[in-house]
Design a binder for these strands. Structure first.
Lengths: 150, 150
DNA sequence: GCCGTAGGTCGATGGAGTCCATAGCTCAGA
DNA sequence: TCTGAGCTATGGACTCCATCGACCTACGGC
């Protein structure tokens, strides 16, 4: 993991569909060398995968909300987690310090669907209550933080 | 935007580095046809880009936190936004309904750095107070929601 | 000093990306 | 019903890329 690896990661975070030849030109190595480095980064799990970044609005998922979950005392956290995992609307899920055990990012098409989702989560065994905040607009998301190429 | 486009989007959200030839095989079209469709999806902004999904821990950014910002009454929201935008640690930023105007996802290396970041945000003109919750673990992030290929 | 290893370049080749001409399909209007 | 426009697919051709193998160099341990 040297500065060239960091640059490769930065470049792939900017555009995951860059060709190896293009990456090679930008970091000043040959294409096979870049190929091997990227392969190792994938093998070690530093690069987990490559995702297309989509316009959710265009796909009919224009409503984004953050939901905090407060569990029942004595609830089985794994059950709650499994239930939430089974909901495709839940894009991200963090286990938190604090009163709210889980913090979810969810995406749905309409406020009505959000309501139904919240009801479903509240009905889940182990969930005591939820707190929902709706995003009026997304300023930015998943902005890559440049590696410190020192 | 038909069901083939939706499948292409799903496939690219799963693996943004899939070759056009591979996509073509999976959706049952020729490679040039897929090339043209993906190009149009990019041109219309439905696909905004392609990102490598990295292991932040491996890059020395093992601390994830969510920060809510409460603005001063009469604060200039754009100034606050610009200040936050200039902080590379802020990965995502939503403008929210409710008391907290902004909700941030931030990533830093250590709790000490998180403390410094919170202080910096609290010192920003227009910011009345912040509320920070630390993620103890990330269950999943940016999980693609399959398009309804009906 | 010699050898093993890690990691690089170079060259070759099979396959992919991409441009272009062409063919079907849908639909509006005579 | 026929025709022409427009869209979108296919197939061929050409260029470029991915990827493999062979070899080269730097470095550390014996």
């Amino acid at each position: 993991m040297d500065s060239i690896d960091l640059r490769l990661i930065d470049l792939l975070r900017e555009n995951a569909r860059s060709s190896y030849a293009e990456l090679a030109r930008k970091v000043g190595l040959s294409a096979p060398a870049v190929h091997e480095r990227v392969g190792k980064l994938e093998a070690t799990g530093t690069i987990r995968g490559y995702q297309a970044d989509v316009d959710h609005e265009a796909l009919g998922l224009g409503v984004t909300a953050l939901i905090g979950i407060i569990e029942d005392s004595g609830a089985d956290t794994d059950d709650v987690l499994a239930a939430v995992r089974a909901m495709p609307e839940v894009e991200s899920c963090y286990f938190m310090a604090g009163v709210e055990s889980y913090q979810l990012t969810v995406r749905v098409g309409t406020i009505a669907e959000l309501e139904q989702l919240i009801v479903r989560i509240n009905r889940t065994p182990g969930v005591a209550s939820t707190r929902t905040a709706i995003a009026l607009s997304t300023k930015w998301e998943n902005r890559p933080q440049p590696g410190v190429t020192s």
